[in-house]
Amino acid sequence: MSAVHPFPIAHSHDTLRVIEEAERDVYWIHMHANLAIEQGRPCFSSRLVNDIVDYQQQLSRKLASSGAVSPHVVLASDSDVFNLGGDLDLFCRLIKAGDRERLLDYAQRCVRGVHTFHAGLGVRAHSIALVQGNALGGGFEAALSCHTIVAEEGVMMGLPEVLFDLFPGMGAYSFMCQRVSPRLAERIMLEGNLYSAEQLKEMGLVDVVVPRGQGIAAVEQVIRDSRRIPHAWAAMQQVRKATTEVPIEEMMRITEIWVDTAMQLGDKSLRTMERLVRAQTRRSGGDIA
């Protein structure tokens, strides 16, 4: 769980706790802020996706107008998990209703959000995922979309979508292939296993692993290290963009495949999703229908 930072700002995104340290161009985005006062699951609800995309747009405009040279944007969580992934309850309802249009709209909004972190908000920002609790499915994809992943020991991450005969369709393959071989990326997606932060660092999928409670200090060290060589760092951001940035068109094509696959799922897969929703609801202390 994230420690308290100074200088929180007021904002209208109730699922986020945003801290803007404009004097040093560091911006912290904590997901699931609303769960401190209301029941819910720490997943990518439509509210959370909308709030993230909206704030990204606001921050991008602000940084562009300020001329910030090397801003840092940190994605973290106010829950005891980073993020449990897509909204499985919503998936079930839309699949049962045959509502491909709404499911595609949700998936495309998710893609825009993760691609914006991947693309540095369009202003060469350095995106950092601070993973202090488990990151599953779309939660892991969101972490992978960031340029640097800092994780605490014992955190588990993975892509379990194969449990309900689906695949992670919001960037996992594209982002993992920047870090590991396509063969390994495919194996991780099709086996659906969970891995510790330590295992993922050995694979090359996580950059920094630190003991529990030291994640924020590690993020600050990453920021300090980048600022010791500001010109080289800024140049490398341009090189990264020129050589490895995943086109959003590629991600949108993949997410259409994901939607078409989801719409074909049968009762067995939907029952598995519903069981996972109940398990997520139990762990968050909510009522189960």
Rank of each mutant, 00 (worst) to 15 (best):
P6D: 14
V210W: 08
H118F: 10
F91A: 05
P71Y: 14
H5D: 11
S60Y: 05
M236P: 00
C92N: 03
F164N: 09
D51V: 14
V259F: 12
F175M: 07
F117K: 04
L16Y: 08
E249A: 11
S12F: 07
I229R: 09
V222P: 05
R275G: 12
I248K: 15
P8M: 12
E191T: 13
V206W: 02
G67K: 03
R93S: 14
N34C: 04
Q58P: 00
A107L: 07
G120Y: 00
V210H: 10
L94T: 06
L121M: 13
V210R: 13
E152P: 03
G215N: 03
V49Y: 13
T116H: 02
T243M: 04
C177F: 01
A185K: 02
E152T: 15
V222L: 05
F44A: 12
T281E: 04
S2F: 12
G40D: 10
A36M: 10
A185H: 01
M203W: 09
V111E: 06
V150Y: 14
S2W: 04
W28N: 07
R100W: 11
N134E: 15
H115R: 14
L166A: 14
L121V: 12
G138H: 13
A10H: 11
G171K: 04
M176R: 08
E141M: 13
K241R: 15
I288M: 00
Q39R: 07
E250C: 01
I9L: 06
N34R: 13
R124H: 15
R179C: 00
V209L: 10
P247A: 05
I95E: 12
R24W: 12
Q221E: 14
R212Q: 11
Q214R: 09
G122Y: 04
E20N: 08
A142Q: 09
G138A: 15
C110H: 02
M252I: 06
L144W: 09
M31Y: 09
V53F: 01
Q199P: 00
F7I: 03
R17C: 08
S196L: 02
V111P: 02
V246P: 07
E141R: 04
L59M: 12
S45V: 05
G204M: 00
M189G: 01
T148M: 06
G266D: 15
L94S: 03
V73N: 10
G40C: 10
Q132N: 13
L63F: 07
Q39L: 03
M1W: 06
I19G: 03
R61M: 11
N134A: 05
E38F: 05
A217I: 07
R271C: 02
I248V: 15
M170A: 07
L200T: 04
S45L: 10
V111A: 10
G138Y: 10
L136C: 01
L121A: 06
L270P: 04
A151Q: 00
A97R: 06
